[in-house]
Design a protein around this nucleic acid. Structure first.
Length: 482
RNA sequence: CGGGGCGUAGCGCAGUCCGGUCAGCGCGCUUGAUUUGGGUUCAAGAGGUCCGGAGUUCAAAUCUCCGCGCCCCGACCA
């Protein structure tokens, strides 16, 4: 690893990613294989993600609850597709208190089963519906290959589980929540995700269908960043979630589930980061503004620090998450690089020249060097100016990511072109698609690209499938994915 | 689990082929100066059961055998 800075993205993208995660002190490897330690800076970022999501969940009528970590193994086996999908990834507890357990307990990989079991006891009448519950939890999936934040054995997430009286209501909920994820991703994380439906091959084990938000990472790969599933009556039948309707008839409930995990942190890193390190969207950044005081002589130190404290207080009063870096033992240049690595959106530099003019210097993280600096920002009204700059930065990040995604989204006319794009520039391939599940498998085998989603927003209309040559109005986005 | 690579100071590594002043380097850390508008410089210092075990040998980081662990590539996935 380089002593300073990170491996350039162009040299080795996954190395760059790992470097950023560790050097920005977001997370570290743990002594347990496949697990990571989320460090305070990374955890604060996650807390900000949680707050932004939780607010949206509450606004859409959901409440939080908590269900147990351990699930009887037999529960997993009640839904055939579900157990088939998750069996290879389960961690199972066979002993407790020095005794062999009568029935093994699964460490939850997801909670549809145990929540389904509880819902069957809580739901009696149509008057009990809908049930709209979310939980913030950790889950465990024994993955073969892990990567910090993107795929770890244990990860943090939220999982929403809802039950409804009608299919229409449940489907509406499924779409509402994928929409909430998209709204969060776009407006908080500045990630221009694409909403769509998963192909049958990629859907959640046990779902009727799954919806997703798909993001494009800096290397052109796709990252599934949140999912919302319509479960039909599959889990209701498996767990006997029944209610009496208004006609006094017994019916199975219609359920949904939806989740978004710490993987989102990975999405933020790979959407906005650059060769200087992390770049954080202001709305989620643990530190939105860092103030770096600069002085030459001891006589300059006092007035510079005095102004720095004054500006810090002004920003704090305006509700900005601000940090004054008054460390004595490192140089200003060191601090610049340090905070750039950590992705702080706005840096305010205050030196003797600024004290004289009663002004400060703004340096935005998304633009390197002088280009991103604004000199002579008056101290009077500095909080307002900083706030405006944060709004500008938030918009600029989204705009840049959107332009990148669009520039790396291509159409192809046939399979040869498809392969050429994947071997060349990569990115998203947006095509008409009339292939079968087997066709999809074959393409995955041959190119490693999968259907990321059938986008909801598909104004293309009818066209020719690049693979089968058939006419269809279905549009698919293919990409290599994490 | 299949294929590759690796385990020596907090981190990154050299040394291993050809056993013997090989316990070394860079960064980081500590102390003191110097410097501070883009990662200052210098000096002095602290820090290691060479992954573990067994064996060969006068002598093992180095050779042999057996373990353990990690990383990368594949099948699986939020």
């Amino acid at each position: 690893m380089a002593e300073k800075g990170v491996t350039p993205r162009s040299e080795d993208y996954s190395r760059w990613y790992t470097d950023v995660v560790q050097k920005a002190e977001l997370a570290d490897y743990s002594p347990v294989k496949g697990c990571m330690v989320i460090r305070p800076y990374g955890y604060t970022l996650w807390e900000n993600i949680q707050a932004a999501l939780d607010r949206r969940f509450k606004e859409t009528g959901h409440v939080n609850a908590y269900f147990p970590l351990f699930i009887p193994l037999s529960f997993l086996q009640k839904e055939a597709e579900h157990v088939e999908g998750f069996a290879p990834q389960l961690a199972v507890v066979t002993h407790g208190g020095g005794e062999k357990l009568e029935e093994p307990l699964v460490v939850r990989p997801t909670s549809e089963t145990i929540i389904g079991h509880m819902y069957s006891q809580w739901i009696r009448s149509y008057r009990d519906l809908p049930v709209l519950i979310n939980q913030w939890a950790n889950v465990v999936r024994w993955e073969m290959r892990t990567r910090l934040f993107l795929r770890t054995t244990e990860f943090l997430w939220q999982e929403g589980h809802t039950a409804h009286a009608t299919q229409a209501e449940a489907e509406e909920e499924t779409l509402r929540m994928v929409g909430v994820y998209a709204d969060f991703a776009i407006n908080e994380a500045a990630i221009p995700v694409i909403q769509g439906k998963k192909s049958d091959r990629e859907k959640f084990a046990g779902a009727v269908y799954s919806t997703t938000i798909e993001a494009m990472m800096g290397n052109g790969w796709a990252l599934q960043s949140g999912t919302s599933h319509f479960l039909g009556q599959n889990f209701a039948r498996a767990f006997d979630i029944k209610f009496l309707n208004q006609n006094n008839e017994m019916e199975y409930a219609w359920t949904t589930s939806w989740g978004l995990s710490t993987r989102m942190v990975g999405a933020i890193i790979m959407t906005h980061g650059d060769d200087q390190g992390l770049v954080l969207p202001p709305r989620l950044a643990p530190i939105q503004v860092v103030i770096v005081p600069i002085w030459r002589k001891d006589t300059e130190k006092m007035p510079v620090l005095a102004l720095a404290h004054q500006v810090t207080a002004a920003l704090k009063a305006a509700g900005i998450r601000v940090k004054l870096d008054d460390r004595d033992e490192v140089s200003a240049g060191y601090k610049f690089n340090d905070w750039e690595m950590r992705g702080v959106p706005l840096r305010i530099e205050i030196g003797p020249r600024d004290v004289e003019q009663n002004a400060v210097v703004f340096a935005r993280r998304d633009m390197p060097g002088k280009e991103g600096k604004t000199f002579g920002v008056p101290v009077e009204g500095v909080a307002r100016a900083a706030n405006d700059m944060l709004v500008t930065l938030q918009a600029a990040l989204l705009q840049r990511a959107t332009a990148f995604r669009d520039a790396n989204t291509r159409a192809v006319r046939n399979y040869d072109e498809f392969k050429q794009v994947l071997d060349g520039p990569g990115g998203f391939i947006r095509v008409h698609w009339a292939g079968s599940d087997e066709d999809e498998d074959r393409i995955k085998d041959e190119t490693k690209a999968t259907i990321r989603c059938y986008p909801f927003d598909a104004p293309e209309g009818e066209g020719i499938c690049f693979y089968t040559g058939k006419r269809t109005d279905r549009v698919a986005i293919f990409a290599r994915a994490y």
